[in-house]
Amino acid sequence: MPGQELPMPGPVKTSRVLLYVIGGLNVLGGVLLLLAGAAQSGELLEADGEGLSAAGLYLGGLLSLALAGVAIVLAARFRSGRQGVRIGAAVVGGLVAANGLLSAVTGSGGLSVAGIALGGITLVNCLKGEAAGYFGRPRTVR
Rank of each mutant, 00 (worst) to 15 (best):
A54E: 03
L59M: 07
A66N: 07
G110W: 03
A89N: 03
A90S: 08
A132Y: 10
L67C: 05
Q40V: 00
L28R: 01
A54H: 05
G115V: 08
P138Q: 15
R139F: 15
F78K: 03
L52I: 11
L95W: 04
K128C: 14
A117C: 10
D48N: 07
G88D: 09
A75D: 12
A97R: 07
G42M: 04
G100A: 00
V12H: 14
A98K: 02
E130H: 11
G110L: 10
V105N: 09
L34F: 04
I116N: 02
G10P: 12
G69Q: 11
V91D: 03
L102V: 01
G84A: 12
L62D: 09
R86N: 01
L118T: 13
L95G: 07
V17T: 14
G42D: 03
V31D: 01
I87Q: 13
T140G: 15
V12C: 06
L32S: 03
L33W: 06
E5I: 01
G94H: 07
L65D: 07
A54L: 00
R137G: 13
E50Y: 10
I116D: 02
R82Y: 02
V12G: 04
V96M: 04
L67H: 01
G88E: 06
Y20I: 02
V92C: 02
V124R: 06
A54M: 00
E5Y: 05
A132T: 15
A47T: 03
A76F: 08
A104Q: 09
E50T: 13
S108I: 08
E46L: 11
G37I: 05
V21M: 06
V17E: 04
V31H: 02
G51S: 09
G23M: 01
L6N: 09
L127P: 05
V27A: 00
T140Y: 15
C126T: 10
G37T: 11
R77D: 12
G37D: 06
G94T: 12
R142S: 15
R86M: 07
A90Q: 02
S53G: 05
L111E: 12
G30Y: 02
A36Q: 07
S41D: 12
N26I: 00
T122K: 00
